[in-house]
Design a protein around this nucleic acid. Structure first.
Lengths: 195, 195, 195, 195
DNA sequence: CATGAATGAGCCTTCATTCAT
DNA sequence: AATGAATGAAGGCTCATTCAT
């Protein structure tokens, strides 16, 4: 990659990151291109140099966050830890990321209203892949006798719900730092699954 | 209340209910007055007979749902149940309501962007009141030895997060009926607090 | 049709007529919705009450003019005239309409860039139907010995070209009134086909 | 002219030619600088090295085509031909050029909206000059008894209309080659003026 | 000379809101 | 009470244009 290409890629990253935090805060329709641009001291028009349109920008921001999350869970899985430790680490990592970058996961309640069919397919594919990571950990935990869970999908969704929701209340209780906070929440959530 | 006033009140209720479900689905900016009106086979203009403006309509819908929730929790509290039973019932009720009416609680991530200061004050007051209901149950549970919870506010927020999030995944797993589903989720959540 | 519906229909007609003349003058991209609106002392937004979007407005204006033209030629055909008289009358009528309403026929050089597939299909269908009217007259003229034409389609296109082009130069030579002008041009064009 | 200047001039020619065909196809507002550039595998910015702005580029393309046309008609006039032959040759040449280079003559219906006053003056001057070429031929034809034309200007405009319009229908009837096609159309048009 | 990047004006479109009927 | 019609502000997007490298 040439220097120029690197710079462009970096700029795209910046825009995505900025967009991610605004989108998590105000939602798709509540976030204007002007918002995203001015937040980075750019002009609206410039953003269109990097992204085809708003849909494209938001889509890429979703893909980015999902890919990062999938990477995270996979890395944790390969560490030399017990199943419960793996799950707790993963959950804590998710929360830490969410509150540090103020970026919401699955922020589009109704993505089908926003994305194209192809985009939706990819988004759902990645969401599933990420969710599967949890499902596998839960299943392994059950098989090895650590966890007591009947309906893995329900539990997984409960976990994800609690985790995704933190962006909406963490800032208010700013006493704990991010890591401590994440660890604390993760520890409570473990109680759901542990025998 | 005269007959006419009753009719008007009823119409308002209808509008609020319809709005609630649309708002939960598409968010504040994603829901247009046209949406709300046509959903009820009315015209946009008519809505302005019942509500000052969109802000007012959405505000009242929020107040309504919060008041209903507060009523719910208070009623449960007065029943002759153990603390854990009270909490579980309340949680289940919340979830059941959320999925049945497809109405999201705290649907405005950033209400400060939408509501006026006075409205915000009331909204936050009601949110706090509802949250306090949980806090009290949790505290009582700790005091009576049922629960093991260090940070009550964190746990309460975890619960609310998981509960509010159900609207985003319930429909997909349409095997269970609403009551069974709510009971199931509530039961898992109880594990967080029980000793 | 109720009074209100009549009014609405009339308003639509007005908009179409105004749009037609502006479009003929400045082309699709050169004509803004603002132009069309302000020309009628309306606001941009109002136009969207009557037409879905610019494409729709322009499409309907095209359909209107083509339908009117087809009607014209059919009416003339049913009159008790010789073939040459019919052709000349039709040509004159076309020209008169074009200069009076300053409305260009087939004004979109590349309609495929502007219209949707369905719209294109209808437009081409109507264009063909109108063109066929000329072709039939020409063929009848040949068969009855009035005309001497080898390639009917080429001649038809030559006629249409000359006729459509008049909007671009008539205003300049404002000495003749519209009817005289149209008759004069038509008379010259007849020389192409007459034996 | 130095080598560099020659190269620059050649590049300008290329740009003009490319622009001409795009402009004929999509009109002034429908043709973007990006279109023109990418058609030549250049970047938008580069074009500004050769032309001050879009207006300038389009202006020069118009001047070019008009000058070429004027040259054409003057060359034909100097040939040893009868008046009718001269007219027919000129008309055929115009048509051939139009369909071969897909370049529309007088493509701006309303040049006054696009060009500056000075530019307009020159454009109109050249248009007139070209038109005068036809007028002279027509007048000579009348004087020498070949033609029967009352209103020379009307006839000239009819001819130009039919000639300019060919770009809009030639491609469709792609059976004839350009020269044959031009000859055929020219031959029909001669009927308008011949006694 | 060429280009990548940025800008700002302008256009299409949506939508909350108003008002006469 | 209800509605058809109109409005204007704002948002998404395009595009001519500029400029540093």
């Amino acid at each position: 990659m040439s220097l120029r290409e690197k710079k462009t890629a970096k700029r795209k990253e910046e825009i995505l990151k900025s967009a991610l935090s605004l989108l998590a805060e105000k939602g798709y329709h509540g976030t204007t291109m002007e918002d995203i641009a001015s937040h980075l001291l750019m002009t609206k028009g410039s953003i269109y140099y990097y992204f085809k349109d708003k849909q494209d920008l938001v889509y890429q921001s979703q893909v980015k966050i999902l890919q990062k999350s999938i990477e995270n869970i996979n890395e944790v899985k390969q560490q030399n830890l017990t199943i419960p430790e793996k799950l707790e680490t993963t959950v804590a990592l998710h929360i830490e990321y969410a509150v540090r970058d103020r970026a919401g996961f699955e922020l589009m309640a109704n993505p089908s209203e926003i994305f194209s069919e192809d985009q939706l397919k990819e988004i759902f594919y990645l969401r599933d892949k990420y969710a599967s990571g949890y499902d596998e950990l839960l299943q392994e935990g059950v098989d090895t006798g650590y966890f007591s869970v009947d309906d893995i999908k329900v539990v997984r969704n409960i976990l994800l719900g609690a985790m995704n929701w933190v962006t909406q209340w963490y800032s208010a209780d700013g006493e704990m730092n991010e890591a401590t906070f994440a660890a604390s929440v993760a520890s409570y959530l473990m109680r759901i699954v542990l025998k």
